[in-house]
Computed example of a mutant assay.
Amino acid sequence: MNMDVCDDLQALRSESVQYVVAPYEADAQLAYLSRTGKVDAVITEDSDLIVFGCERIIYKLDQYGACVEIRRDRFAAVTEVNFVGWTDELLRQMCILSGCDYLPSIPGMGLKTAHRMLRQLRTAEKVIRSVRMDGQLRVPPDYEKAFRRAELTFWYQRVYDLDARALTTVNPVPQGLDISEMDFLGPLLEPEVARGIATGDLNPITKEPIVDLTADASKDQENIALHARRKPVSPWLQRNKTFRPKPSTTPNAKSITNYFSILLVFRLD
């Protein structure tokens, strides 16, 4: 396990700060915390949080407290683009049409074009059909299927519920929609595994218990000191007093960064 992640978890626990580790994607988990009122705002640099439906997002927060705040209840005040009467569904479809993490855009389809066509036609299906019939932009053969999958991912991605201590979805799944085989929403986990990941006790990649590397490193230092009483420590170790042996089972650091997201639960005054 990445040493920095373990240190962060230990710091949060020592200060009694409530947190949750996202079992799947951090964006979806943050959106769920926002939707259920667990947080007053989300601090991020990712525009996908708008598509996920966060009510209040803080961008470009600096050390002096300066930031850019985006509030969903003020979208109608935007003057550059007309969002009067614009629904969450239309906003989500506009963003997907212009390209998102789950689906590249139709070549040549930007935000302004997607917005204009949706205002005219009102549904993504009609927009895609119109673009395909027009022939000026090339629509991939399986685009409609991929679009539907992206919509489902934004709306029903699996997250962790702090109150129920179990997996749920960003938004309630309507009756008649079966998501049991939709692994792209997040493969189902055993309840105890989901709880272990969310509480920071299990590695979200390997599903193995997280070892407190800080404690292990301290023991290693003690062992080195004890050994030094009987045998001189090498000059390299004398120069590198913060030496910590690297565990042979350390997961790829990039994987940890991508999938192990610590989310603080906070309340703004």
Rank of each mutant, 00 (worst) to 15 (best):
Thr153Tyr: 05
Leu202Cys: 05
Cys95Phe: 09
Gly37Ile: 06
Phe154Ile: 00
Thr257Phe: 15
Arg229Cys: 15
Trp86Asn: 01
Glu45Asn: 13
Ala146Arg: 04
Arg230Tyr: 15
Lys112Gly: 09
Lys241Ala: 13
Arg119Cys: 10
Asp269Thr: 10
Leu167Trp: 01
Tyr24Ala: 00
Gly196Asp: 04
Leu177Asp: 06
Glu192Asp: 14
Thr249Pro: 04
Arg158Val: 04
Asp101His: 08
Ser261Gly: 12
Leu268Ile: 11
Glu181Met: 13
Glu15Phe: 10
Pro174Ser: 13
Tyr259Ala: 11
Leu61Met: 11
Arg56Asp: 09
Thr36His: 12
Asp216Glu: 15
Ile57Val: 07
Ala31Cys: 06
Ile96Asn: 00
Arg56Trp: 09
Gln18Glu: 15
Ser98Arg: 04
Leu91Ser: 05
Leu49Ser: 00
Thr214Ile: 06
Pro141Asp: 15
Gly176Leu: 11
Gln29Tyr: 03
Glu192Ser: 10
Phe184Asn: 08
Ile197Ala: 00
Asp183Lys: 10
Val173His: 06
Gln120Pro: 01
Met109Gly: 02
Gly108Ile: 05
Arg165Trp: 12
His227Leu: 15
Pro174Cys: 14
Cys95Lys: 03
Leu97Met: 07
Glu125Arg: 09
Lys241Ser: 14
Val159Pro: 00
Tyr259Lys: 12
Glu181Asp: 14
Asn240Ile: 07
Asp269Ser: 14
Asp62Ile: 05
Thr168Arg: 05
Asp220Leu: 10
Val20Arg: 02
Arg119Val: 03
Ile262Pro: 03
Glu181Ala: 15
Leu121Ile: 06
Glu45Phe: 11
Ala11Lys: 09
Arg229His: 13
Gly186Trp: 02
Gln120Cys: 12
